[in-house]
Structures are given as structure tokens and as C-alpha cells.
Nucleic acid binder design. Structure first.
Lengths: 209, 209
DNA sequence: GTCTATACGCTGATAGAC
DNA sequence: GTCTATCAGCGTATAGAC
């Protein structure tokens, strides 16, 4: 029986507790290895509440997914609003993704690593979602204005973001044991070598925070 | 009731039928959305046989996984045995992976796209398996003998194979609607631009089949 | 070795009190 | 809105005949 003092704990909203618990469990065990009872237990709510708020386990996952997609989208919008060159935008996004991977591991895992098709059958693949489309557009804009050398759009995007995302996967899988930000400078230099017109050294400098 | 004539159909071994059916189902619906009954039905065998041969659903998945890892490993050994430069080896592997993605879609999907952790909890991640280690070694050998410019090993490998693998993911997710081999030449040219010492145009030429 | 029929636990979901 | 108690169905696994 908790003392009254314990009640002074910040009363985190119920929805939030559920989503936080769900994210943690989904990432650690995988969606299908988590039951509604598990979520209920970890979030300290009743099953009834979960069904009232989200309509069931799939509803929780979908809500989580949309929520995080929104966060992601917002992050990209912020970067675009910052008035950088398109190359700098790419750099900044990679930097942010690398930092997220270290500080908010579960989010990146859930968004980049999870197979949503298996539990959200009606959702299109993540890569076709707005944030990823925008990332591809940034590369296209860069080619249009001559910042980035012309080439097939899929190839160029894969070369810019694909290798970074691949490193994120390797990090999440525990193969790379150094924090990703430590790779940032060398990776960026490597990415643009041969992808930008001659003598554009300024792409090297880290973007301002 | 089938006529005797039907019995002339090549008697494919029972194990093989099970594994083929399982691969198909796992890839289409995801491991957790497939029941032993589904496999049994599609393979035209009884549940008992599945338990006799593989000990259960997880056993089927594990057997399938090992089997395909072996195939993959063999493919790489063949390439290494071919006496090519390390750069050519990378090219050849990317070419083969692209071709596999088109011709043996399910295999690539199951090996590169599936989250094995969720149903084979004791297996290390695919990327730490021998084939992938060998791919990283090829890049390292290339750096050692001066074919490939020196740099961090993770970064260089991600730049060489990561972008190709990323394109495979995009293709499997249905975003890229052209067969991957059509991207091969431009991608290869793009990959080595800035990664090999000056004037090494020969990397461009497609490797002999 | 192969099959059928059956058992049993777990999970998603609901009903109904508060 | 929140909770507890309960249900129905599915999916793994086994027992035992052939």
C-alpha cells in the first residue's frame, strides 16, 4: 500500500503511459510477442482502458506509428525551414538520425527496423510515408539547382541516405559498437565525394545546431 | 480421388515441400501470421510430419534460415574463388543480389527483410552471419592491397553494400518499380567514384558471367 | 514415418459493476 | 471512464492408430 507521498508523482496521462509501455515492449520483444495483458501490466492500467482508448492492440500500434511518423515529419519540416542548402539539409538529417539512434533508440528501432506490414497490414511501407518522400525530394531539389550531380533519383537517394540508414541498422543490431555520431564527419565527406560539383568543400563542415 | 497417372508427378521430398511452403507463407504473411496448419495444408503433409521433421514451427523457420544462409555463403565462396579483384568481387555480388531479388524474390525477402530476432530469438542478427562478414572482409582486403581508398571499415562497407541493400529494400517494398539490374551500371559507377584511386575506369565494366 | 483427433494454454476481446 | 471477471477461438503440441 503506497503512502500518500507517492501520489505526488507527476500524473502522466493514461494514453501516454500506454503508448510508452507499448513502444518499449514492441521494440524489445516484437509486436507479436507482446500481449495486451503485458501492455496493461507495464502501463499500470486496466485492459478495459486500452480497449476504450485504442480499440485493441492493433489500435495501440497504429496510434504509436502515426504519432512517431508525425514527430519525424516535424523534425524534417524544421530542417527544411532552416534555410540551408539541400546538401546541408541531407547532412543535418543524417546527423539528427544518428543522434536519435543513440538517445531515442526505441523510436528509431520501431520506425526503421520494425516490419509494420506484419501487424498493420493496411499501412503502406514506411519508406513511402511523407518523411521519406520528403528526404527523396530534398535530393531531387539538390539536383535541380545543381548542388548535386545529376543521376537516377533512386540511386542518388540510396547513396546519400541508404548508406547512413544501413549504418543505423548495423548499430541497432549491435554490430557497430561505437556511437554513430562519431562516424558522422567521415561519412558525410565520403557521401559527397563525387556527388557534388568540383571544389565544394563546404559540404564538409558540420551544420550549425 | 486422384488417378494413378497423377502419381507420376515427380515425388518431391517431403522436407523440401514443407520448406518451400513455409518460405512462401512466411514471406507473404510474416512468420507470426502463419500457423502450422497453414504450412501443413499448403505442403500437403500432416501436422505430425512437420513435428517429426522439424520439431515445430520454429524448427521449420530455423532450418529454412540455415539452409538459405548456406546457399548465400556458397554464392559468395564461388565469387571469391573466381580470381577477381576485390572491387570486381563487390560488383559481382551486387549484381547477383540484384538478380536474385528479381528471380528469387522470396529468398531475398526472407534473408534481408525479415526480423529473425522475433521468431529465432537465439540467432545473432543476419548481418553478423558469415556471408555478411565475408562481404565486409572483401572490402577490407581491397583497402589492404590499395584497390580501395583507406577509410573506416564500417563506413566504406556501408557505402559499397549499404546503398545497394537499401535499393533492394525499396524494391521489395514496391517503391522501385523497375527491375534492379537496370540500375546496376549506374550504381556501380557511382559507388566507386571517389572510393578507388585515380583513373581506375575498369571498375565500370560489368564482371564476366 | 505418416496421419487424425484431441488437449490445453494463451490471447484478444467483451460484459457489466463501479 | 476505469476496472475485474470471464469467454470464445485459435494455434501449438501430443497421443495413439495405421
Amino acid at each position: 500500500m503506497p503512502f500518500l507521498k507517492d501520489k505526488e508523482i507527476v500524473p502522466e496521462p493514461l494514453d501516454c503511459r500506454i503508448l510508452t509501455a507499448a513502444l518499449d515492449l514492441f521494440v524489445r520483444r516484437g509486436y507479436h510477442n507482446v500481449s495486451v495483458h503485458d501492455i496493461q501490466r507495464m502501463a499500470n492500467v486496466s485492459i478495459g482502458s486500452i480497449y476504450n482508448h485504442f480499440g485493441g492492440k492493433e489500435g495501440v500500434a497504429r496510434s504509436l506509428y502515426y504519432h512517431l511518423l508525425d514527430e519525424f515529419e516535424e523534425m524534417i519540416s524544421d530542417v527544411i525551414a532552416e534555410d540551408l542548402t539541400n546538401v546541408e539539409r541531407c547532412n543535418k538529417l543524417i546527423k539528427l538520425l544518428f543522434e536519435y539512434t543513440e538517445s531515442r533508440y526505441e523510436i528509431v528501432e520501431f520506425m526503421l527496423h520494425a516490419k509494420h506490414r506484419e501487424f498493420l497490414p493496411d499501412e503502406p511501407p514506411v519508406c513511402s510515408a511523407t518523411p521519406f518522400r520528403t528526404m527523396r525530394n530534398i535530393v531531387k531539389w539538390g539536383m535541380d539547382v545543381g548542388e548535386i550531380l545529376h543521376g537516377d533519383s533512386w540511386i542518388t537517394t540510396s547513396r546519400v541516405f541508404g548508406s547512413a540508414i544501413h549504418m543505423i541498422h548495423l548499430r541497432l543490431d549491435g554490430l557497430i559498437d561505437k556511437p554513430l555520431p562519431e562516424f558522422y564527419d567521415e561519412l558525410i565527406e565520403n557521401i559527397w565525394r563525387g556527388l557534388v560539383p568540383e571544389k565544394q568543400d563546404q559540404v564538409l563542415k558540420a551544420v550549425p545546431d
